[in-house]
Amino acid sequence: MAQRHLYIGLMTGTSLDGIDAVLVDMASSPPQLLASLGAPLPSVLRAQLLQLQSPAHDEIHLAQLAANAHSLACAEVVKALLQTTPYQASDIQAIGNHGQTIRHRPELGYTLQIGNHALLAEHTGITVVGDFRSRDVAAGGQGAPLVPAFHHALFASPNQNRVILNIGGIANLSWLGQHQPVSGFDSGPGNVLMDGWIHQHLGAHYDADGAWAASGQILPDLLADMLTEPFFALSAPKSTGRDLFHQAWLDQHLAGRNDKPADVQATLCALTANSISQAILSQGTPDEVLVCGGGAHNQQLMRLLAEQLPCPVSSSASVGIHPDWVEAFAFAWLAERCITGQSANLPAVTGAQGPRILGAIWPN
């Protein structure tokens, strides 16, 4: 049997909906997904991470406690993942752990993803690679999105111009053209505003299948007002996060209005679809769009995208990769690039001064 090179990828995204873990064989071409597991974030940890999205009293202390809790939760998910496989911790080359973003300010020269990687290595007995974004930012880049190079490795087609669209809390896209360099950038909000609004009004963490959005009416004047956000008109490279698209941003646009909550949700769904469609079409007309991330399950959002884009729009499952596991898969890939000393950023995407090896290593 050919030797395997096994890596685990971990991801908790802007949506804060859970921990995604995958086991990948990097010796295969293309890399092969061997196992996957998702687990909800512990409710106390989720609340801590949400609190850290905004300035707070004693936040250095709170961030360290949350980093410890995040890593302990990740360690339990890694152990549970391995129990579904014939492999042991000693078989794994490394864990690629994104950590949890609590600030993203590349224009000020920093981005911060918390997670106690030493603690994760200690509790799993596996080398950990983390802090993937800082080196790109140090080289003058945005530190995001980091996935276009991975998307190219996994999804590029010699016969089609593909867009890989990741809709997590924030939406980002990778343009994989047949005769042009890979490009990519954040388009704006994915699920983050919709998740916050439904939690505020119905207590749910997300709009299952987009059903609440589908029950409302899109408010054209509100949508037009939100689309005046300057971020949408910026040229790439660009990236964003909860630092911009948060409840206070939405409150500003709702000031003086008295709309039905379901209509606001419908309009937020349309905002995500419109900003994504505009971003894609600003680069050209693709042959197909493959969607990954939690947004792939939002049927109303997928319907709007299909209406607005002049090409097929489908889940990444249509090419054999379940949409829930693509981002975690990317961080397994990024970990392997770091361990083997290969650059992983795309300067044309992030704006960095050149290719860089991304990540720091906590050896077992």
Rank of each mutant, 00 (worst) to 15 (best):
Q3L: 11
G9K: 05
M11N: 12
L16G: 04
G18K: 05
L23H: 05
D25I: 02
L33M: 14
L37S: 00
A39E: 12
Q48I: 04
Q53C: 14
S54Q: 15
S54E: 15
Q64C: 15
L65E: 14
A66G: 00
A67H: 06
N68G: 13
A75T: 00
V77L: 01
L82G: 00
Q83C: 13
T85R: 00
D91K: 00
D91H: 03
I92P: 01
G96P: 11
N97Q: 13
H104G: 00
L108S: 15
G109A: 06
Q113G: 10
G115K: 09
H117T: 15
E122T: 13
H123R: 13
H123V: 02
G125S: 03
T127V: 09
F132Y: 12
S134H: 11
Q142G: 04
L146Q: 08
V147N: 03
V147P: 04
H152G: 07
S157P: 05
N166K: 06
G168Y: 09
Q178H: 09
V182D: 09
S187C: 14
G188H: 00
G190F: 02
L202F: 10
D207S: 09
D209K: 14
P220Q: 06
D221L: 12
L222K: 09
T228A: 10
P230A: 05
P230K: 07
L234M: 15
S239E: 03
T240C: 12
H246I: 05
H246F: 10
A248H: 14
G256S: 04
K260P: 06
V264S: 09
V264A: 11
C269P: 08
N274M: 13
I276T: 06
Q278E: 11
E288F: 02
V291D: 01
H297L: 10
L304Y: 02
L304H: 02
L305V: 02
A306K: 11
A306P: 06
Q308H: 13
L309V: 00
V319C: 03
G320Y: 00
I321P: 01
D324E: 14
V326D: 01
F329S: 02
A332I: 04
A332N: 04
T340N: 15
G341H: 01
S343A: 15
N345Q: 05
L346K: 06
P347E: 08
V349D: 00
I357E: 10
L358S: 06
A360K: 15
I361R: 02
N364L: 13
